[in-house]
Design a protein around this nucleic acid. Sequence first.
DNA 1: TGCCAAGTGGAACACTGCTCCGTATATTCG
DNA 2: CGAATATACGGAGCAGTGTTCCACTTGGCA
Lengths: 187, 187
Amino acid sequence: MAESTGKRADARRNEKALLDAAAAVFVSDGVDAPVRKIAAEAGVGMGTIYRHFPTRADLVVAVYRHQVDACAEAGPALLASAESPFAALRSWVDLFVDFLVTKRGLAAASRNDPDGFAALHGLFLERLLPVLDDILAAAREAGEVKSDVPAYQLLRAIGDICAGAERVDPGYDARITIGLLLDGCRG
Amino acid sequence: MAESTGKRADARRNEKALLDAAAAVFVSDGVDAPVRKIAAEAGVGMGTIYRHFPTRADLVVAVYRHQVDACAEAGPALLASAESPFAALRSWVDLFVDFLVTKRGLAAASRNDPDGFAALHGLFLERLLPVLDDILAAAREAGEVKSDVPAYQLLRAIGDICAGAERVDPGYDARITIGLLLDGCRG
DNA sequence: TGCCAAGTGGAACACTGCTCCGTATATTCG
DNA sequence: CGAATATACGGAGCAGTGTTCCACTTGGCA
């Protein structure tokens, strides 16, 4: 019964254990936590972790995929409920920033690892870019955004700023920068 | 004769060799190049490199210090010659961005290494922050900048954006984002 | 010249991501 | 129920990193 995946029962169990362990370790140690630690936390060996997630980035993507989905799905709702498209833009960007800054190291996770970057970047592009694009288009139509900056440019800038902001420093607030950026879009 | 440093002649020679080697390797391999490679290029042992530069960040700072100085010194000149303080702001930021993007990995060099970050960050704060602060103040006085964003916030945002932009991607241009940011400052 | 503190080199350590393959076991079939 | 087999597991091991340590060399001075 259960999943129709051809996987063996223990394999499925281990995959779940790994996802849970990774989520826990990412919270306590940051996304850069050693693979060994995640394997240990899950109570499996190195071989197992690499069997299920060929690269650490795959694991990261798997762990956060549903949160990214939630962020993507919130877009249209915000656009419908906010008092203006630009307000929706602000709210949605806030959501994304929240997501990024509450996951220690998420945005920077792939820094050292080009493949990892591609995976995470790809997830954002696939799920979030269309959403931001819609919001941006609506805001333009309402005359609230003059700049013709592409959504990609904006999405990436936000990611980069949050990545840099991960360093703890009481005097710095990434949200201020991002607010400035959005103001810049109004032209 | 020569420097009044109490250092031995061979020590001074090695320090110079290391700086030259590091500069060369940074260009060809990026700022993240292995320490061993720099030592080999300079023809010295591991012990020597760590004697002169206790951490890789110290080496990075030493290599780029005079370029940072040049950037700092260009500030007042730009302010005097540009047709408006905001134009000077743009030009100066361009200068800084040029510096960051032409040094592969410079802005991200310290990413993995908190001490390294502090060193580089400290250099920028010490040399560049006052310059940006002056330009920003002038632009505000001329009514060209409405936002009261602190210079620190802006400087760091630029650094973070360039750090993120280091990943090669023909579709992304950090300068667009930074331009947007400056537009945002005009309020 | 001879001495010795300053300086050097590179082996060794601790840590990382990742691979490999002998072993264990879930599942299936007789 | 008991074997046969494909599937999955564990962890030792490899390659590469930054950094430390200390026996050895050498510049500069008396």
